[in-house]
Write a protein that binds this DNA or RNA. Sequence first.
RNA 1: GGGAGCAUAGCUCAGUUGGUUCAGAGCGUCUGCCUUACAAGCAGAGGGUCGGGGGUUCGACUCCCUCUGCUCCCACCA
Length: 883
Amino acid sequence: MELSAKYNPSETEDKWYAYWLEHKFFHSEPDGREPYTIVIPPPNVTGILHMGHVLNNTLNDVLVRKARMDGKNACWVPGTDHASIATENKVVAKLRAEGIEKENLTREEFLKYAWEWKEKHGGIILSQLRKLGASCDWDRTKFTMDPELSEAVINTFVYFYKKGYIYRGIRMVNWDPVGHTAVSDEEVVHRDTVSKFYHLRYFISDGNGNPTDKYIIIATTRPETIMADAAVCINPEDERYHWLKGKKVLIPLINKEIPIIEDSYVEMGFGTGCLKVTPAHDVNDYEIGIRHNLPVVDIIDDHGRLNEKAQILVGEDRFDARHKIEGMLREAGNLEKLEDYTSPVGYSERTNAVIEPRLSMQWFLKMDALAKEALESVESGKVKLIPDKYRNTYRHWMENVKDWCISRQLWWGQRIPAYYLPDGRFVVESTPEAALEAAKKINPDITAADLKQDEDVLDTWFSSWLWPISVFDPEKPGHPEHRPNADLAYYYPTSDLVTGPDILFFWVARMIMAGNEFMKDIPFRNVYLTGIVRDKLGRKMSKTLGNSPDPLDLIDKYGADAVRLGMLLCSSAGNDILYDEAQIEQGRNFCNKIWNAYRLVSGWKTDDDAVQPQASAVAVRWFGNKLSLVLGQVEDHFSKFRISDALMTIYKFFWDDFCSWYLEAVKPAYNTGIDRATYAATTGYFEALLKMIHPVMPFITEELWQAMEPRMAGETIMLQRYPTAGECDNTLIGDFENACEAVAGVRNIRQQKNISPKEPLTLKVRTGFPEWTVPVIEKLANVNVVIAEFSGEKASGVTFMVKTHEMFVPLTGLVNAEEEMAKLLSVIEYQEKFLESVRKKLSNEKFVNGAPEKVVAMERKKEADSIAKIEAARASLKALKGE
RNA sequence: GGGAGCAUAGCUCAGUUGGUUCAGAGCGUCUGCCUUACAAGCAGAGGGUCGGGGGUUCGACUCCCUCUGCUCCCACCA
């Protein structure tokens, strides 16, 4: 077979993925083996693959494939998340583009559109993951709104309600005026935002609602809310304003009379020291309002517009209103001055709308008991966070957690199973039938038609926190006494979870809570937290910046293996990765390197009569030992989740040790056959290497493994056992490294003296050098090695050191004595300084007595080595001088 | 405002209880090569007072203090 000089991924990737699917290699069923389980962080059902997904799912896949090759029963459960607010927004936007407003639709009509959208776009991302090579058990694909998973969510709600953890109440919540829903504290991101600080004059009332000529100045960033003011507050200690006590002031423009109150919350040094209190639209003001029994005037509606209670600017958007009221206040003489002002403003994570603090009736889940236990799970080490530094963050959050607002004013999601009686009382049951039964206990006359179900749906995270349980057994959550389920018993707890730190609290912490509550066990043992993918300037990838490449384009251009390697190359756990297309190119180059190594080996013809050359025998012996050494290192890296280290170790082993040294050492001369022993060893090593690389680069390794020799139908590299480390002789490996250094030394001389690699040279070494490696040196350096003394002839050649072994290349007529002497002098100078520092240490009694014996012995060896080097250099110098 | 973390080669980062000749890797750079697997390649080379200062120690990239610079998280938008 004639192979092209370049690897072509597009010809192989789809073929092998189809082959893997056809033979159901990804599918897992419980059996006697040790399970290895990962649940996918479910991407949004309508999402498309971005670079963050690529990083995350590549890591997942590497872990799963490695575990599978280690003989474990590996199961990676895929699925998608209904992402209520994000998806509902997309559907609303799409309908709007078609001229349909959500407000004009019934809940049922809207949900029909939403499901259509989901059917059309849902799962695109899952098919994109296939392109990446993800070895998910697709037969187990789940969606958080699958009927049985939704049922689990409802049962969970009922469970916690009956346990007394869920309550309903009017609270100040984070209102998203674009999504028209409350969002949890965790879904609000604060960003410093430039705005204006408005200094407003509030005139003192004469007692009859008329302004006097006296006024106070109040600084606010939100002049559009003044109509909702319930009071003006001063600090009781603030002598500047004692004259105000008991007085009333008038709200500008609407001339509404409000009292002056005193509360130590007000900081005298901030602003003007006078605070307008707007209980309906500010969390702190709300607290003050409660303390002082102030009325709550809510002047902003669901959409962020002023309502009729505002009296003026009714129907205007809050930001338009802010702009307009500025002019009105100026005209009315109430605007003292304007300042630029930067302050943190809360934005909705999903819609990027400025959050409006707003009072509303919501459902909450009590968190204290759940958080306490979830904190313990991590503190005790039962759940390990990787990297460990996130434990601090985790602890801080768990110790300061507030109750979780779980209701959302949306339609796309699991509807809250609370049913209201006409008198306003309600029952919470998992089905309408059960609700009716419960309602009849309150009022026997109630009929099904009288019961009205709550309009809200549950926060998406209220379903995804069940994910590690519900993908295996949706009946379990909320049913502590439920019947056993073989899948859940086998796969739970899952092994590792790979996800981003941005959802440590949203998702990870809450899964731990749900696991503890329903399984009395943690949901996973290790949480590997990836970094955020940034561009090479360190900016987050975003649509608006346009700095995020489409992973599918990259896969088309470079191949999935290259993309996978590129993403993993410099991604250590918890560190952001700076994406640079050059890394993907490096991945592609590595594919090409593997491909060409295969081209070389596959072109060899075995010759039964050929005797194994000595150089080959040496190389085979060395490489076997090195393989063991490297496998040990790789295993160690994997066990510590140092994926990029494992990868780099394998990368260098293949490129440097295998290609540059081993293959060059055993490569037969042109048009010459290769002996059987060397060929067998080489293909064995190559196969081991392909297996080592497979978890990271599944496609090319399958392609070459299949091509190496005829395979049975249904055979695959992905189910081969990962090679394991055997014994390794470190002395032998060290000897070979010395040989490599000797080769490099000769090559260096060739370059400096401009001697062609084709011109044979002589290399003289003294006895003591490990002679067994000589054949390799001779072959790779194109030298004739002579073991002999050479002190007398140093002037007519070049010497160099390999460790403490002095080597000599006779080069009559090519030696520049001045240059050589200068080199030697600098060596002597360096070594003398070094020797001095070593001797200083050794003459220090505290060191000799205090340091471990091993360390002292090492210092003595340094001393001896240094002396040897100095002596050798001096001898050479003497020879050059002709002494 | 509170908390956490980071600072090592031009770039991205390792450096695992303070002690192997420990100052490293990859990429990039420079030099020489179209050598019959690979120029997406081969061979060789250069490059850092480990952010500044102080301390502990026989010994500090590693531990402590301090300064400077950066990042992230949390936090009620006067």
